[in-house]
Simulated assay, not measured.
Amino acid sequence: MSRLPVSSLISPPEPKPLGSFNQSLSPCASQEPSFENNTLPPISADRKRTQSEMDLPSPPVTPNKKPKSSLEDQNDRDASTVSAKDPLLFAPNEAGVASDQPLFGPQLVPSSTAELVARHIESRRRIVKDERKIPALADYQTTIDCVPKVGTLYNRNPYAYYIQERHYLETTLSKCQRAGSQTAPKFQKIAPAPPKSAPAISKPRPKRTPKSTPKQRVHDSFGTATPTPKPARVIGTNRDDTDYRSLPDYCPPIETLRGNTKGLKADWKGQMLDLSNDPDRHELDPAEVGLAATLRLSCATYLCSKRRIFEARVNALHIGKEFRKTDAQQACKIDVNKASKLWTAYDRVGWFKPEYFRQYL
C-alpha cells in the first residue's frame, strides 16, 4: 500500500485580499456632489477645427478594428510579398470606361454654407407648399452661428450650474405631471360581467291588476226615474238581411234546376242549421234549403243574398262587365266567404247565363 506524500496534507495558500475603496469616493458618502477642482479641461489647439473644416461634410465613420495577433500580422506580410498591389476592377483599355473617371460620378461639393442652405430651402419649397412652414434664411444662419457654451458656463461655477439644471429638471417634470393629470381621460366604472356558468336571471313579470267595475251613477233623489236599459242587439236579424220582399227579383226560375240540383252544394265547417220550421221554407227549392242550412243562413237571409247577387248580375250586363266572385261579395251583406260559396254554386248550375236576364235589359 502506497503512502500519501506530505505535500498533499498542506492546505492551499489563502487568496490575496481584495483592494479596499476610499470612502470619500463612495457615492453614498455625501448627498451633494463635490465640485472642488472639478472643471472640464480646455480643448487643445491641435484638436480645434476651423470654420472651413466644419462646413465640409464629415467622412464616414470607420468601424472599430480589433488588434491583430502576431499570427495575423505574419499572414498579412506573407500576402504582401506575394501580391504587391490589388487587382484592377476594370481593364484600362475596355471600351466605354475611362480609367480616371470616378465610379459614382462627379461629387458636387458646395462652395459655401450659404449655397448649401439655399439648396435645402429650395428642396423644402418643392415638398411644402406653405411658405410659412419653411424656415427663413436668418433662422439657418442663427443655427450655424450657434456656439456651444456649456463647458464655459460649467467652468465658471460648477455648483451653481448644477443647482440651475436640477431646478429646471424638477420644474419640467412637475409641469408634465400636472398636464398629464389634467388630460387623463376619466373612465366610468362598470359592473363586472356575470360568469358564463351562471344562468340568465329573468325579470319577474309584473302582475296585472284586474280592472275595477265602473261605479254606477248616484242620483240626487229617489224621485228620478231610473234609465231604461238598452235592448240587446240581435245579430243577423236586421231589416237589410231578412226583408227580401223589398228587393227586386231577377232570379232565374226554380224550374231550371230540375235534374241539376247536385251543383247547389257547398263545404262549410260547423253543424248544419235546422230549417225544418223556417216560415220561408216554401220559397226555396229543397236543394237551396240544403245549401242555406250548410252555410248556416236562414231562408229569409238566403233569399235576400240571392236577390242581391242577381241584381248585381243584371247591372253588370247593362255596362258590359263580367260578373266575378268579388262582385258577389260586394253585393251581399253577409260573410264574404259565404257569398263566395253562393257564387260558386250558382255558377255550377249555370244561373249566370245571359239568356236568363235578357228580359230585364
Rank of each mutant, 00 (worst) to 15 (best):
P92Y: 07
T261A: 10
D220Y: 13
L89N: 04
A292V: 01
Y140S: 03
K48V: 10
L103K: 11
H219I: 09
C176P: 02
F21S: 12
C146T: 09
T213N: 08
F187N: 13
K341E: 13
S44K: 15
T209S: 05
A179D: 05
L284G: 01
I190K: 14
K203R: 11
S34N: 14
E14F: 08
P106Q: 14
Q31Y: 00
L247F: 08
T261R: 13
R258T: 12
L56N: 11
R217D: 07
E165A: 08
D280Y: 15
I144V: 09
C28R: 09
E115V: 11
R245S: 08
P12W: 10
M1Y: 14
L40S: 08
D76G: 05
I254G: 06
R119Q: 06
T344W: 01
S340F: 10
P87W: 03
P41F: 09
P57A: 04
V336S: 15
A84P: 05
F222N: 08
Q51P: 07
N75F: 13
L257N: 08
Y168D: 15
K129D: 07
N337P: 04
Y346T: 06
S305M: 13
P13L: 11
D285C: 07
L257A: 01
R125K: 11
T301A: 12
D335L: 08
C176K: 07
S70Y: 03
A300C: 10
Y356E: 01
P67S: 06
T256A: 11
T242F: 08
K16W: 12
R166I: 03
A118T: 00
A114T: 14
P231I: 09
G320W: 02
S24C: 12
V147S: 04
G290C: 10
Q182K: 14
Y154T: 00
L4G: 08
P231Y: 04
P206F: 11
S340K: 06
M54Q: 06
L247Y: 04
K129H: 01
C304E: 09
R313S: 05
T50L: 00
Y356G: 07
Q51A: 11
Q330R: 12
R208C: 09
E36W: 07
E122R: 11
T50S: 04
P15W: 01
F187T: 12
K269I: 05
P158K: 06
R307D: 04
P12Q: 09
I319F: 13
I201M: 05
P106F: 14
E131T: 03
P13Q: 02
S99A: 00
T62G: 03
A118H: 04
F222R: 14
P248H: 05
N37C: 06
S7W: 05
Q359T: 10
T261K: 12
Y244S: 12
A331M: 01
Y161I: 03
D139I: 12
R49V: 02
T50Y: 04
K341W: 05
F352E: 02
N75Y: 12
T301L: 04
C28A: 10
G350K: 00
S30Q: 10
N315V: 00
L116V: 02
A232Q: 13
L4V: 14
N238K: 10
R358Q: 15
A193K: 10
L361F: 02
L18A: 14
Y154Q: 02
R233Y: 15
E14G: 06
K269F: 08
E165N: 09
A84F: 12
S2N: 15
I254F: 06
P248L: 05
Y159P: 08
F90G: 07
V82L: 07
S44W: 14
T152W: 04
L273K: 06
N22P: 01
